[in-house]
Design a binder for these strands. Structure first.
Lengths: 193, 193
DNA sequence: CGTCTATTTGAATGTACTCAAAAGCGGTGG
DNA sequence: CCACCGCTTTTGAGTACATTCAAATAGACG
Protein backbone atom coordinates (compact mmCIF):
# COMPACT_ATOMS: atom_id res chain seq x y z
CA UNK A 1 0.00 0.00 0.00
CA UNK A 2 1.21 3.45 -0.94
CA UNK A 3 1.14 4.96 2.55
CA UNK A 4 3.09 2.26 4.37
CA UNK A 5 6.41 3.95 3.79
CA UNK A 6 5.39 7.34 5.16
CA UNK A 7 3.65 5.79 8.17
CA UNK A 8 6.70 3.71 8.96
CA UNK A 9 8.71 6.90 8.66
CA UNK A 10 6.45 8.88 10.99
CA UNK A 11 6.42 6.07 13.53
CA UNK A 12 10.17 6.44 13.99
CA UNK A 13 9.53 9.66 15.88
CA UNK A 14 5.95 9.67 17.15
CA UNK A 15 3.38 6.93 17.89
CA UNK A 16 0.01 7.31 16.16
CA UNK A 17 -3.30 5.65 16.89
CA UNK A 18 -5.10 4.15 13.87
CA UNK A 19 -7.53 7.10 13.97
CA UNK A 20 -4.65 9.57 13.86
CA UNK A 21 -3.08 7.67 10.99
CA UNK A 22 -6.34 8.03 9.10
CA UNK A 23 -6.48 11.77 9.66
CA UNK A 24 -2.90 12.10 8.46
CA UNK A 25 -3.46 10.00 5.36
CA UNK A 26 -6.67 11.80 4.50
CA UNK A 27 -4.71 15.05 4.30
CA UNK A 28 -2.12 13.65 1.89
CA UNK A 29 -2.40 13.76 -1.86
CA UNK A 30 -0.53 11.38 -4.12
CA UNK A 31 1.16 12.84 -7.16
CA UNK A 32 3.10 11.24 -9.99
CA UNK A 33 5.76 13.26 -11.78
CA UNK A 34 7.61 12.09 -14.85
CA UNK A 35 11.35 12.38 -15.28
CA UNK A 36 12.30 15.95 -16.16
CA UNK A 37 9.03 17.42 -14.97
CA UNK A 38 8.99 20.07 -12.29
CA UNK A 39 7.22 20.14 -8.95
CA UNK A 40 8.17 23.78 -8.51
CA UNK A 41 9.82 26.61 -10.41
CA UNK A 42 11.13 29.98 -9.23
CA UNK A 43 8.40 32.58 -9.06
CA UNK A 44 5.70 30.05 -8.22
CA UNK A 45 4.39 29.74 -4.69
CA UNK A 46 5.20 26.49 -2.99
CA UNK A 47 1.80 25.18 -1.87
CA UNK A 48 2.98 21.92 -0.33
CA UNK A 49 5.76 19.83 1.12
CA UNK A 50 6.46 16.54 -0.65
CA UNK A 51 7.52 13.15 0.70
CA UNK A 52 9.20 10.95 -1.91
CA UNK A 53 7.68 7.48 -1.84
CA UNK A 54 9.37 6.37 -5.06
CA UNK A 55 11.91 7.97 -7.36
CA UNK A 56 14.30 10.86 -7.04
CA UNK A 57 14.05 14.65 -7.00
CA UNK A 58 16.60 17.40 -7.06
CA UNK A 59 16.10 20.84 -5.57
CA UNK A 60 18.29 23.53 -7.10
CA UNK A 61 18.90 27.20 -7.61
CA UNK A 62 20.16 29.01 -10.69
CA UNK A 63 22.37 31.98 -9.81
CA UNK A 64 22.81 35.32 -11.58
CA UNK A 65 25.52 33.87 -13.79
CA UNK A 66 23.20 31.06 -14.89
CA UNK A 67 24.99 28.36 -12.88
CA UNK A 68 22.94 25.62 -11.19
CA UNK A 69 23.55 24.80 -7.54
CA UNK A 70 21.90 21.76 -6.01
CA UNK A 71 20.51 22.13 -2.51
CA UNK A 72 19.30 18.57 -2.09
CA UNK A 73 18.79 15.21 -3.74
CA UNK A 74 15.64 13.62 -2.36
CA UNK A 75 15.28 9.88 -2.83
CA UNK A 76 12.78 7.58 -1.14
CA UNK A 77 11.78 8.69 2.39
CA UNK A 78 13.09 12.23 2.02
CA UNK A 79 11.01 15.40 2.15
CA UNK A 80 11.47 18.15 -0.40
CA UNK A 81 10.06 21.65 -0.58
CA UNK A 82 11.00 25.29 -0.74
CA UNK A 83 10.59 25.98 2.95
CA UNK A 84 10.86 29.73 2.57
CA UNK A 85 8.13 29.92 -0.04
CA UNK A 86 5.96 27.41 1.78
CA UNK A 87 6.13 29.29 5.08
CA UNK A 88 5.71 32.78 3.74
CA UNK A 89 3.56 31.93 0.70
CA UNK A 90 5.82 34.18 -1.32
CA UNK A 91 7.51 33.33 -4.64
CA UNK A 92 9.99 30.47 -4.58
CA UNK A 93 13.57 30.79 -5.74
CA UNK A 94 14.15 27.07 -6.23
CA UNK A 95 13.43 24.46 -8.86
CA UNK A 96 12.26 21.01 -7.82
CA UNK A 97 12.67 18.54 -10.66
CA UNK A 98 12.14 14.80 -11.00
CA UNK A 99 15.31 12.96 -12.05
CA UNK A 100 13.32 9.74 -12.45
CA UNK A 101 9.63 8.97 -12.73
CA UNK A 102 8.66 9.79 -9.18
CA UNK A 103 5.76 9.40 -6.79
CA UNK A 104 5.33 11.90 -3.97
CA UNK A 105 2.87 12.31 -1.11
CA UNK A 106 2.03 15.96 -0.64
CA UNK A 107 0.55 17.99 2.15
CA UNK A 108 -0.52 21.56 1.53
CA UNK A 109 -0.28 24.41 4.00
CA UNK A 110 -3.94 24.44 5.00
CA UNK A 111 -3.89 20.68 5.57
CA UNK A 112 -0.72 20.89 7.59
CA UNK A 113 -2.25 23.57 9.80
CA UNK A 114 -5.29 21.34 10.29
CA UNK A 115 -3.00 18.43 11.08
CA UNK A 116 -1.18 20.45 13.74
CA UNK A 117 -4.55 21.43 15.22
CA UNK A 118 -6.07 17.95 15.20
CA UNK A 119 -2.98 15.89 15.99
CA UNK A 120 -0.55 18.16 17.83
CA UNK A 121 1.98 15.34 17.95
CA UNK A 122 2.85 16.36 14.42
CA UNK A 123 4.32 19.60 15.72
CA UNK A 124 6.81 17.34 17.39
CA UNK A 125 7.31 15.19 14.33
CA UNK A 126 8.17 18.08 12.06
CA UNK A 127 10.26 19.70 14.76
CA UNK A 128 12.35 16.53 14.94
CA UNK A 129 12.69 16.35 11.15
CA UNK A 130 13.80 19.95 11.13
CA UNK A 131 16.32 19.36 13.90
CA UNK A 132 17.89 16.55 11.91
CA UNK A 133 17.89 18.57 8.71
CA UNK A 134 19.40 21.49 10.61
CA UNK A 135 22.28 19.38 11.90
CA UNK A 136 22.89 17.92 8.44
CA UNK A 137 22.96 21.40 6.89
CA UNK A 138 25.35 22.67 9.53
CA UNK A 139 27.70 19.82 8.74
CA UNK A 140 27.46 20.63 5.06
CA UNK A 141 28.34 24.27 5.75
CA UNK A 142 31.36 23.22 7.81
CA UNK A 143 32.50 20.78 5.16
CA UNK A 144 32.16 23.38 2.43
CA UNK A 145 34.33 25.67 4.54
CA UNK A 146 37.02 23.21 5.54
CA UNK A 147 37.25 20.52 2.86
CA UNK A 148 38.82 20.63 -0.57
CA UNK A 149 36.69 19.55 -3.53
CA UNK A 150 38.29 16.12 -3.39
CA UNK A 151 37.42 15.63 0.27
CA UNK A 152 33.86 16.83 -0.29
CA UNK A 153 33.48 14.35 -3.12
CA UNK A 154 34.70 11.50 -0.95
CA UNK A 155 32.33 12.57 1.81
CA UNK A 156 29.40 12.72 -0.60
CA UNK A 157 30.09 9.21 -1.88
CA UNK A 158 30.25 7.90 1.69
CA UNK A 159 27.15 9.70 2.88
CA UNK A 160 24.85 9.08 -0.07
CA UNK A 161 25.88 5.66 -1.34
CA UNK A 162 24.06 4.69 -4.50
CA UNK A 163 22.94 8.22 -5.29
CA UNK A 164 25.87 8.60 -7.68
CA UNK A 165 24.38 5.69 -9.66
CA UNK A 166 21.08 7.52 -10.03
CA UNK A 167 22.11 11.06 -10.95
CA UNK A 168 24.40 12.46 -13.67
CA UNK A 169 27.87 13.47 -12.58
CA UNK A 170 27.42 17.05 -13.56
CA UNK A 171 24.68 17.24 -10.92
CA UNK A 172 27.00 15.85 -8.27
CA UNK A 173 29.39 18.62 -9.31
CA UNK A 174 26.55 21.14 -8.92
CA UNK A 175 25.92 19.76 -5.42
CA UNK A 176 29.57 19.94 -4.43
CA UNK A 177 30.03 23.41 -5.87
CA UNK A 178 32.61 22.54 -8.53
CA UNK A 179 32.60 22.36 -12.32
CA UNK A 180 31.81 19.06 -14.09
CA UNK A 181 35.23 19.25 -15.73
CA UNK A 182 37.00 19.39 -12.40
CA UNK A 183 34.92 16.55 -10.95
CA UNK A 184 36.03 14.48 -13.90
CA UNK A 185 39.65 15.20 -13.02
CA UNK A 186 39.03 14.19 -9.39
CA UNK A 187 37.41 10.94 -10.47
CA UNK A 188 40.40 10.06 -12.62
CA UNK A 189 42.79 10.67 -9.73
CA UNK A 190 40.58 8.58 -7.49
CA UNK A 191 40.39 5.70 -9.96
CA UNK A 192 44.18 5.34 -9.78
CA UNK A 193 43.91 3.65 -6.37
CA UNK B 1 13.99 42.80 34.10
CA UNK B 2 16.22 40.09 32.71
CA UNK B 3 13.46 37.99 31.15
CA UNK B 4 11.69 40.73 29.22
CA UNK B 5 13.78 40.22 26.12
CA UNK B 6 13.16 36.49 25.85
CA UNK B 7 9.44 36.86 26.55
CA UNK B 8 9.15 39.52 23.90
CA UNK B 9 10.97 37.18 21.58
CA UNK B 10 8.70 34.22 22.33
CA UNK B 11 5.60 36.36 21.91
CA UNK B 12 6.53 37.01 18.29
CA UNK B 13 5.51 33.44 17.51
CA UNK B 14 3.21 32.16 20.24
CA UNK B 15 0.94 33.83 22.80
CA UNK B 16 1.50 32.85 26.42
CA UNK B 17 -0.72 33.30 29.46
CA UNK B 18 0.97 34.76 32.55
CA UNK B 19 0.95 31.28 34.11
CA UNK B 20 2.69 29.82 31.08
CA UNK B 21 5.24 32.61 31.15
CA UNK B 22 5.97 31.70 34.76
CA UNK B 23 6.49 28.04 33.93
CA UNK B 24 8.84 29.00 31.11
CA UNK B 25 10.84 31.40 33.22
CA UNK B 26 11.08 28.96 36.10
CA UNK B 27 12.83 26.51 33.77
CA UNK B 28 15.44 29.04 32.65
CA UNK B 29 18.76 29.57 34.33
CA UNK B 30 20.74 32.78 33.97
CA UNK B 31 24.44 32.46 33.34
CA UNK B 32 27.17 35.04 33.01
CA UNK B 33 30.22 34.27 30.91
CA UNK B 34 33.25 36.50 30.66
CA UNK B 35 34.93 37.36 27.40
CA UNK B 36 37.06 34.44 26.18
CA UNK B 37 35.34 31.91 28.40
CA UNK B 38 33.68 28.90 26.88
CA UNK B 39 30.12 27.69 27.15
CA UNK B 40 31.07 24.46 25.44
CA UNK B 41 34.13 22.65 24.13
CA UNK B 42 34.45 19.65 21.82
CA UNK B 43 34.16 16.38 23.71
CA UNK B 44 31.79 17.83 26.31
CA UNK B 45 28.10 17.06 26.19
CA UNK B 46 25.88 20.01 25.45
CA UNK B 47 23.40 20.06 28.31
CA UNK B 48 21.46 23.16 27.29
CA UNK B 49 20.48 25.64 24.63
CA UNK B 50 21.37 29.26 25.33
CA UNK B 51 19.53 32.48 24.51
CA UNK B 52 21.81 35.52 24.44
CA UNK B 53 20.26 38.34 26.46
CA UNK B 54 23.39 40.47 26.41
CA UNK B 55 26.75 40.15 24.70
CA UNK B 56 28.07 38.07 21.85
CA UNK B 57 29.03 34.43 21.32
CA UNK B 58 30.69 32.59 18.52
CA UNK B 59 30.18 28.94 17.72
CA UNK B 60 33.04 27.34 15.80
CA UNK B 61 34.75 24.17 14.74
CA UNK B 62 38.45 23.42 14.44
CA UNK B 63 39.22 21.11 11.54
CA UNK B 64 41.92 18.45 11.17
CA UNK B 65 44.39 21.01 9.87
CA UNK B 66 43.83 23.20 12.94
CA UNK B 67 41.83 25.84 11.08
CA UNK B 68 38.86 27.50 12.80
CA UNK B 69 35.52 27.74 11.00
CA UNK B 70 32.74 29.81 12.48
CA UNK B 71 29.24 28.39 12.30
CA UNK B 72 27.45 31.30 13.93
CA UNK B 73 27.81 34.62 15.68
CA UNK B 74 25.07 34.96 18.29
CA UNK B 75 24.31 38.45 19.53
CA UNK B 76 21.32 39.58 21.57
CA UNK B 77 18.13 37.59 20.90
CA UNK B 78 19.89 34.69 19.17
CA UNK B 79 19.99 31.10 20.37
CA UNK B 80 23.24 29.13 20.41
CA UNK B 81 23.94 25.48 21.06
CA UNK B 82 25.43 22.36 19.57
CA UNK B 83 22.15 20.88 18.38
CA UNK B 84 23.66 17.51 17.55
CA UNK B 85 25.17 17.06 20.99
CA UNK B 86 22.11 18.45 22.73
CA UNK B 87 19.73 16.09 20.93
CA UNK B 88 21.80 12.95 21.16
CA UNK B 89 23.60 13.73 24.43
CA UNK B 90 26.80 12.65 22.73
CA UNK B 91 30.09 14.58 22.66
CA UNK B 92 30.03 17.94 20.96
CA UNK B 93 32.34 18.90 18.13
CA UNK B 94 31.91 22.65 18.51
CA UNK B 95 33.30 25.39 20.69
CA UNK B 96 30.99 28.10 22.01
CA UNK B 97 32.99 31.08 23.22
CA UNK B 98 32.05 34.50 24.56
CA UNK B 99 33.51 37.34 22.48
CA UNK B 100 32.30 39.88 25.05
CA UNK B 101 31.13 39.58 28.64
CA UNK B 102 27.86 37.86 27.97
CA UNK B 103 24.64 36.94 29.74
CA UNK B 104 22.67 33.93 28.54
CA UNK B 105 19.40 32.29 29.56
CA UNK B 106 19.74 28.54 29.43
CA UNK B 107 17.32 25.67 29.29
CA UNK B 108 18.56 22.13 29.79
CA UNK B 109 17.22 19.06 28.06
CA UNK B 110 15.13 17.78 30.96
CA UNK B 111 13.57 21.21 31.43
CA UNK B 112 12.84 21.54 27.75
CA UNK B 113 11.12 18.16 27.74
CA UNK B 114 9.05 19.29 30.73
CA UNK B 115 8.24 22.52 28.95
CA UNK B 116 7.03 20.63 25.88
CA UNK B 117 4.86 18.47 28.13
CA UNK B 118 3.40 21.30 30.20
CA UNK B 119 3.11 23.97 27.51
CA UNK B 120 2.89 22.18 24.16
CA UNK B 121 2.80 25.53 22.39
CA UNK B 122 6.55 25.51 22.78
CA UNK B 123 6.80 22.63 20.32
CA UNK B 124 5.46 25.14 17.85
CA UNK B 125 7.76 27.90 19.02
CA UNK B 126 10.92 25.86 18.55
CA UNK B 127 9.61 24.43 15.31
CA UNK B 128 9.24 27.96 13.98
CA UNK B 129 12.71 28.97 15.18
CA UNK B 130 14.12 25.90 13.49
CA UNK B 131 12.27 26.65 10.26
CA UNK B 132 13.78 30.11 10.15
CA UNK B 133 17.24 28.83 11.00
CA UNK B 134 16.85 26.16 8.34
CA UNK B 135 16.02 28.70 5.65
CA UNK B 136 18.93 30.91 6.73
CA UNK B 137 21.33 27.97 6.60
CA UNK B 138 20.11 26.95 3.17
CA UNK B 139 20.79 30.45 1.92
CA UNK B 140 24.25 30.34 3.39
CA UNK B 141 24.95 27.04 1.62
CA UNK B 142 23.78 28.49 -1.68
CA UNK B 143 25.84 31.61 -1.21
CA UNK B 144 28.94 29.63 -0.35
CA UNK B 145 28.41 27.67 -3.56
CA UNK B 146 27.69 30.56 -5.89
CA UNK B 147 29.39 33.66 -4.55
CA UNK B 148 33.02 34.72 -4.66
CA UNK B 149 34.69 35.69 -1.39
CA UNK B 150 34.10 39.35 -2.20
CA UNK B 151 30.37 38.83 -2.73
CA UNK B 152 30.07 36.79 0.45
CA UNK B 153 31.79 39.55 2.39
CA UNK B 154 29.42 42.17 1.03
CA UNK B 155 26.46 39.93 1.85
CA UNK B 156 27.73 39.42 5.40
CA UNK B 157 28.10 43.15 5.98
CA UNK B 158 24.57 43.74 4.71
CA UNK B 159 22.99 40.92 6.68
CA UNK B 160 24.74 41.41 10.01
CA UNK B 161 25.22 45.17 10.25
CA UNK B 162 27.21 46.17 13.29
CA UNK B 163 28.56 42.69 13.93
CA UNK B 164 31.79 43.64 12.14
CA UNK B 165 32.25 46.30 14.81
CA UNK B 166 32.04 43.71 17.56
CA UNK B 167 34.20 40.86 16.29
CA UNK B 168 37.81 40.73 15.02
CA UNK B 169 38.22 40.57 11.27
CA UNK B 170 39.98 37.26 11.35
CA UNK B 171 36.77 35.80 12.74
CA UNK B 172 34.75 37.26 9.92
CA UNK B 173 37.26 35.56 7.62
CA UNK B 174 36.71 32.30 9.52
CA UNK B 175 32.96 32.74 9.03
CA UNK B 176 33.30 33.43 5.30
CA UNK B 177 35.75 30.59 4.76
CA UNK B 178 38.70 32.68 3.63
CA UNK B 179 42.09 33.60 5.13
CA UNK B 180 42.48 36.79 7.18
CA UNK B 181 45.11 37.93 4.68
CA UNK B 182 42.73 37.69 1.78
CA UNK B 183 39.95 39.45 3.67
CA UNK B 184 42.38 42.29 4.26
CA UNK B 185 42.95 42.52 0.49
CA UNK B 186 39.20 42.58 -0.15
CA UNK B 187 38.70 45.35 2.39
CA UNK B 188 41.37 47.45 0.72
CA UNK B 189 39.71 47.04 -2.68
CA UNK B 190 36.38 47.93 -1.13
CA UNK B 191 37.73 51.05 0.59
CA UNK B 192 38.72 52.47 -2.79
CA UNK B 193 35.08 53.32 -3.59
C1' DC C 1 55.34 51.48 28.17
C1' DG C 2 55.99 46.98 26.45
C1' DT C 3 54.21 42.77 24.86
C1' DC C 4 51.12 40.18 22.36
C1' DT C 5 47.89 39.69 18.86
C1' DA C 6 45.54 41.47 14.79
C1' DT C 7 46.01 43.45 10.39
C1' DT C 8 48.40 44.75 6.27
C1' DT C 9 51.47 44.01 2.41
C1' DG C 10 53.82 41.38 -1.12
C1' DA C 11 55.85 37.41 -3.66
C1' DA C 12 55.42 32.72 -4.92
C1' DT C 13 52.20 28.87 -5.27
C1' DG C 14 48.11 25.96 -5.73
C1' DT C 15 43.46 24.76 -6.39
C1' DA C 16 39.86 25.08 -9.19
C1' DC C 17 37.86 27.57 -13.38
C1' DT C 18 37.23 28.77 -18.42
C1' DC C 19 37.22 27.63 -22.96
C1' DA C 20 37.69 24.45 -26.60
C1' DA C 21 37.56 20.11 -28.60
C1' DA C 22 37.25 15.09 -28.61
C1' DA C 23 35.27 10.91 -27.01
C1' DG C 24 31.55 8.30 -24.97
C1' DC C 25 26.78 7.12 -24.22
C1' DG C 26 21.79 6.89 -24.48
C1' DG C 27 17.68 7.50 -26.54
C1' DT C 28 14.93 7.82 -30.77
C1' DG C 29 13.35 7.13 -35.31
C1' DG C 30 13.80 5.11 -39.64
C1' DC D 1 18.47 -3.24 -35.14
C1' DC D 2 21.33 0.09 -36.42
C1' DA D 3 22.54 4.93 -37.26
C1' DC D 4 22.34 9.32 -35.89
C1' DC D 5 21.75 13.21 -32.80
C1' DG D 6 22.22 15.46 -28.57
C1' DC D 7 23.93 15.52 -24.18
C1' DT D 8 27.40 14.04 -20.78
C1' DT D 9 32.03 13.15 -19.67
C1' DT D 10 36.86 13.47 -20.57
C1' DT D 11 41.13 15.84 -21.70
C1' DG D 12 44.25 19.68 -22.01
C1' DA D 13 46.06 24.44 -22.15
C1' DG D 14 45.86 28.82 -20.25
C1' DT D 15 43.98 31.72 -16.41
C1' DA D 16 42.00 33.55 -12.05
C1' DC D 17 40.88 33.51 -7.42
C1' DA D 18 42.50 32.55 -3.15
C1' DT D 19 46.30 30.46 -0.22
C1' DT D 20 50.85 30.14 2.02
C1' DC D 21 54.68 32.06 3.97
C1' DA D 22 57.26 35.87 5.57
C1' DA D 23 57.83 40.29 7.30
C1' DA D 24 56.35 44.94 8.54
C1' DT D 25 52.93 47.83 10.84
C1' DA D 26 49.23 48.90 13.76
C1' DG D 27 46.32 48.23 17.81
C1' DA D 28 44.73 46.47 22.23
C1' DC D 29 45.40 45.28 26.82
C1' DG D 30 47.60 44.62 31.01
Amino acid sequence: MSFDLILKNVSRHIALTPAEEDIFISLLRTKEISRRDFLLRPGEISRCESFVSKGCLRMYHVDDKGVEHIVLFAVEEWWAGDMYSFLTQRPASLYIEALEDTQVLQIDKASLDRLYAEVPKFERFFRILLQNAFVAQQNRILQNLSFTAEERYREFMDKYPGVDQRVPQKMIAAYLGITPEFLSVLRKKRAGR
